[in-house]
């Protein structure tokens, strides 16, 4: 099939950037990234610069993909990262617009590559259990109910891609933040630092340039791992308990 692509090209972080049209021949078994590989091979041989994009595992788990396809982070398929999106969902003659994830906290580095380092900073502020190697009790010392473990897993499933931020009209990372707080907050191991954690992570989130949450739910719709929206409720609940109810200081 022949496709008309409009791709965001931006030389570096200071370049203004622009959309550029390309034609590419694709085959229905290709993944979206393989279609871009074909375009890039063509560009290189024609003496042009290939389109830079982040990708790595190409099986939907590393979270490196960072494209907005026709206005949707990771494109039109539900619960599917860009690397797992296949061209059989397109037909001959289609036009496709490809842009980078856009958010104040994710500056563009080049073409479709953005800087998501702010996510690491948010984790640094408390997205862990403070336990040094070697000091752990036996794994069976603390039973965890299956319900809690499953809910924790559903949140821990987050791949840190940033689609939630790109989808949010406010550029908020509340879904990402709520996912980590729920993952750790559901486990007994996460309790001692629970309220300290939420305050520190929220503060870092705000400082990193992410916006506030206005409950549009666009994040959960865009999330390729279907992180449930109610992790944001947990984030808000914990935050209120930590600040208004003063749990933070009582531990």
């Amino acid at each position: 099939m022949k496709l008309n692509l409009k791709v965001w090209r931006q030389r570096d972080s200071v370049d203004k950037g622009r959309m550029v049209n390309y034609e590419v021949d694709a085959d229905e078994d290709m993944s979206f990234l393989e279609m871009l590989d074909v375009l890039n091979e063509k560009l290189i041989l024609a003496g042009d610069e290939p389109v830079a994009f982040d990708h790595d595992c190409r099986e939907g788990i590393c979270g490196a993909c960072s494209m907005v396809i026709d206005g949707q982070p990771h494109g039109p398929q539900k619960a599917t990262t860009t690397c797992q999106l296949h061209m059989r969902h397109y037909s001959d003659g289609d036009s496709i617009v490809v842009e980078p994830f856009r958010a104040g906290a994710f500056p563009v580095i080049k073409d479709l590559v953005v800087d998501r380092g702010a996510f690491d900073k948010v984790i640094q502020a408390g997205g862990y259990v403070s336990v040094n190697t070697g000091s752990a009790p036996d794994a069976h010392a603390t039973p965890v109910s299956k319900v809690a473990a499953d809910r924790s897993f559903a949140a821990a499933n987050c791949i840190g891609c940033g689609a939630c931020v790109a989808a949010c009209p406010n550029g908020s990372a509340s879904l990402f933040l709520g996912a980590k707080l729920t993952h750790l907050g559901e486990m007994p191991q996460g309790q001692p630092e629970r309220y300290e954690r939420v305050v520190n992570m929220v503060e870092t989130h705000d400082d990193a340039g992410f916006g506030g949450c206005t409950n549009t739910g666009a994040c959960a719709t865009a999330c390729p791992k279907e992180i449930p929206l109610d992790v944001i409720s947990q984030l808000n609940r914990d935050y209120l308990k930590a600040t208004v109810a003063g749990r933070r200081n009582r531990g």
Partner: peptide, 17 residues
Amino acid sequence: DQCVAQGVPFAREYGGL
């Protein structure tokens, strides 16, 4: 032991183990 202490959500049985 170490991973459980870090809060890794391993699969569990109904008894919590």
